[in-house]
């Protein structure tokens, strides 16, 4: 479960490559950044990011605040597109195909690349409706199939026993940790191949955090996970691969063990030993 250390070879945007659920199982859930750079107005936030994420593994992105790791994460489902006065160069590939290719619908992309946010953000609706939201709008399930689908998603992300009698309670009435697992279930209901997590435990207490971490390790059996975290112990606990971002650059990426025991770059070493950040 390791990602290549060398920069991925430069490839042209593969517009005609297989897209979505039809993609061969071998590359479903694969992710690649190819000389990706990103600007907010005149400010460049990301420089020439190139790496590849192995399918069905956990990749942690670490780095000090403002280093661009969240910008990168939010580029992967094209949420960044919605911000005014932003632009990018280079390419990002999901399942082998460019996500910026003409004909790629960002709305459809976001169903394949799910996201969990820093602060739990359930809709002010029932637990059931929260989970059913994605499939309902995606038209992937009829109303009759929804209960089974919701149960499956909740079983994967939450303790089903905790919530099965509370499907009608508002999602906002749950505890913080339960809310976050509800948000994960909500993302899983779309059956995404990739799940992006933007500091998913920074608003949670240690016990809730531990449960989310266990969940992340469980989920990687069938989902590729990219997790941004400020917590280096967390990166060490849950990830197979760790990438270190600094000042908009991907300084170093390698197996988590290698990054934390024998980092190749002095800046990585300085960060993980707590000298800055």
């Amino acid at each position: 479960m390791s990602a290549p250390l060398a920069p991925a070879p430069r490839v042209r945007p593969a517009a005609a490559a297989p897209d979505g659920p039809g993609a061969p199982a071998a590359i479903r859930g694969s992710l690649r950044a190819d000389h990706y750079a990103f600007w907010y107005g005149a400010t460049q936030a990301l420089f020439d990011v190139t790496f590849e994420v192995a399918p069905r593994a956990v990749t942690a992105l670490i780095g000090p605040s403002g280093c661009g790791k969240s910008t990168f994460l939010r580029s992967l489902n094209r949420l960044q597109d919605l911000l005014p006065r932003t632009r990018h160069t280079g390419d990002l590939l999901v399942d082998g195909a460019s996500i910026f290719a003409p004909g790629v619908d960002p709305v459809a992309l976001r169903r394949r690349v799910g996201m969990v946010f820093q602060k739990p953000n359930p809709f002010p609706k029932s637990v059931f409706d929260n989970v059913a939201y994605g499939p309902r709008v995606g038209g992937t399930a009829g109303e009759a199939e929804l209960p089974a689908l919701v149960e499956r998603a909740l079983r994967r992300a939450a303790r089903w026993d905790e919530v099965k009698y509370r499907l009608d309670t508002p999602g906002t009435a749950l505890s913080g940790g339960q809310q976050q697992r509800l948000c994960i279930a909500r993302a899983l209901a779309n059956e995404p191949a990739i799940l992006l997590m933007d500091e998913p435990t920074s608003a949670l207490d240690p016990i809730a955090t531990q449960r989310i971490e266990e969940l992340v390790v469980e989920l990687k059996r069938d989902v590729t996970i990219v997790i941004v975290t400020h917590n280096m112990q967390q990166a060490a606990r849950v990830s197979d691969t760790t990438g270190f971002f600094y000042l908009g650059q991907l300084v170093e990426i390698g197996t988590t063990q290698q990054i934390f025991t024998s980092p190749g770059d002095p800046r990585t070493e300085a960060y993980i030993t707590g000298r800055f950040g």
Partner: peptide, 22 residues
């Protein structure tokens, strides 16, 4: 809150539908 908008968008909601429903 913007987080609700992002939640809906990240679930594959078109922009107009996010505005109207969520």
């Amino acid at each position: 809150p913007n987080s609700l908008r992002e939640a809906a968008l990240a679930l594959g909601y078109p922009r107009w539908r996010t505005s109207l429903t969520v």
